Simulated assay, not measured.
Amino acid sequence: MLSDSLDRIFIRPLTAAQLLLTAVTLTLASSFYCLIYTTLAGRGEPLVDGIVWAGLNIVPWLICFEIAKRSGSWFSQFGIVLVFAVGMSLLDHLMSGSNVMFELTRRLPGAAVIAGMLALSWILRRFVSERAADKKLVSTDELPLLIDQIGWVVAAGNYVELHGSGAPILHRMSISAMERLLSAHDFIRIHRSVLVRRQNIKDLTGNILTLNNGQTFKIGNRYRLALQ
């Protein structure tokens, strides 16, 4: 339905590890770009200056997008963008004594890019929902898949990922609400962020659970007793 990269960037929230890796990658890439640019311009600057610049001007926008992506309404999303723009401007003002309005104006292109990415995220979500409906995967008003098509469920912020035989489908529902919905259909919670179909469990060794298809999960301690 969507490539995994598009799905991960614009719809599903990044994990903490993925967010950290992305932030480090963007920082290093921006730093080397600044180093090359200033060197070619005849005024080479230390690499550390580029790292500080990226840390103040790029990484905050990445964090802003991830926080806004988890929000449920346009109003709150753009409110988050505004808060970040103002906050970054005030920080620059405090650090360098520059004019706040000048710094805020300088943040407008970045804010516009984030707003555009959020708009694209909304469009892609609509696209995914419409494609699911076109393929007649909708069985009720609550789920975009037939219950028999779901193998396991993973929490993703304000959404859950429904995993079956095809690509994961994102659905706006908390993992707790999904647990209540699926508990009568042989699904059991094995972690604060994972539900599995009990009949699909193949093996339980230590704190590692294996499904019939080879998928493995780490079991949360609080859910072990119910599983046994």
Results as ranks from 00 to 15, higher is better:
Ala156Gly: 04
Ala29Lys: 01
Val196Leu: 01
Ile63Ala: 09
Tyr223Ala: 04
Ser30Tyr: 06
Gln149Ser: 13
Gly55Ser: 03
Leu182Ala: 05
Ser96His: 11
His191Asn: 08
Ile201Asp: 06
Gly151Trp: 05
Ala115Asn: 02
Leu108Cys: 03
Met95Trp: 12
Arg70Cys: 09
Arg8Ser: 11
Ala167Leu: 09
Leu181Trp: 06
Ala68Pro: 01
Ala119Leu: 12
Tyr223Trp: 04
Gly72His: 05
Leu14Val: 06
Val194His: 12
Ala177Asn: 12
Arg12Trp: 00
Ala17Ser: 08
Val128Asp: 08
Gly214Phe: 08
Leu19Ile: 04
Asn158Glu: 13
Ile9Tyr: 06
Pro168Gly: 10
Ile175Thr: 03
His185Leu: 07
Asp4Cys: 09
Ser89Tyr: 00
Ile150Met: 02
Ala115Arg: 01
Leu21Cys: 10
Thr25Gly: 10
Thr15Met: 03
Ser76Val: 15
Thr39Leu: 13
Arg107Ala: 15
Met88Phe: 07
Leu26Asn: 07
Gly116Asn: 06
Thr210Asp: 02
Ala167His: 13
Val113Lys: 00
Ile219Ala: 06
Ala23Thr: 02
Leu82Ala: 15
Glu45Met: 09
Ser129Tyr: 11
Ala112Ser: 10
Pro46Ile: 05
Gln149Arg: 08
Arg172Tyr: 05
Ala41Leu: 07
Ser73Asp: 05
Arg126Met: 15
Ile123Ser: 15
Arg107Trp: 08
Gly157Ala: 03
Ala133Cys: 05
Met117Asp: 02
Leu227Pro: 00
Asn221Ala: 13
Lys218Asp: 13
Thr216Trp: 03
Arg198Trp: 07
Glu66Gly: 02
Phe78Arg: 04
Val153Ser: 00
Leu162Thr: 03
Trp53His: 09
Gly157Ser: 05
Ala184Glu: 11
Val86Gln: 12
Gly97Val: 01
Ile114Gln: 00
Val52Leu: 09
Ile123Pro: 07
Leu146His: 15
Gln228Glu: 14
His93Val: 10
His185Gln: 13
Gly116Phe: 03
Lys202Thr: 06
Leu120Ile: 15
Arg180Lys: 15
Ala119Asp: 07
Glu179Trp: 03
Asn99Pro: 03
Glu66Asp: 00
Val86Trp: 12
Pro46Glu: 06
Phe65Tyr: 07
His185Tyr: 07
Asp186Lys: 01
Ser3Asn: 14
Leu118Lys: 00
Gly157Arg: 00
Gln215Thr: 12
Asp148Asn: 14
Val86Glu: 10
Val48Leu: 13
Asp92Thr: 13
Phe217Leu: 04
Ser30Lys: 02
Thr27Val: 02
Val100Pro: 04
Val194Tyr: 09
Phe84Thr: 09
Ser121Gly: 12
Ala155Lys: 02
Asn99Trp: 11
Val128Trp: 02
Asn99Phe: 11
Val194Phe: 09
Val59Phe: 00
Arg8Thr: 10
Arg224Val: 13
Leu26Arg: 01
Ile9Gly: 01
Ile150Ser: 00
